[in-house]
């Protein structure tokens, strides 16, 4: 099980799209930094609908998007570290 880490917004870089092409069903996606903005757009909400997704709480709060993104799973930095340990490896796209 792989943790795929995306740090850039789809508007800025192709990382998320590329990752989703090669991801396994049971892998996890962690969105941090500007990547959290992707979930504001319904195209990406659909793409990520069946996936196990985490978004980094600090980055969401920093952008004032806590309410708008409330339906997604937030994790903070400590939980992020825990997640990296639970997975076989992390791929930073």
């Amino acid at each position: 099980m792989i943790l795929h880490h995306i740090q850039t917004s789809p508007a800025q870089d192709n990382a998320l799209a590329t990752c989703l092409r090669y991801i396994d069903k049971q892998d996890t996606v962690l969105l941090s930094g500007n990547a959290v903005n992707a979930l504001l757009l319904n195209t990406w909400q659909h793409e990520l609908a069946q996936r196990r997704i985490f978004i980094l709480e600090e980055d969401v709060k920093a952008r004032g998007l806590t309410e708008r993104l409330s339906q997604f799973n937030f994790i903070n930095y400590e939980q992020f570290v825990q997640e990296t340990l639970h997975h076989d490896k992390v791929i930073s796209w």
């Binding site: 792989i2 990382a15 090669y22 396994d24 076989d88 490896k89 791929i91 930073s92 796209w93």
Partner: peptide
């Protein structure tokens, strides 16, 4: 292939 690798760098 990504699953089999020990490390993957992009």
């Amino acid at each position: 292939h990504l699953a089999d690798a020990d490390e993957v760098l992009v």
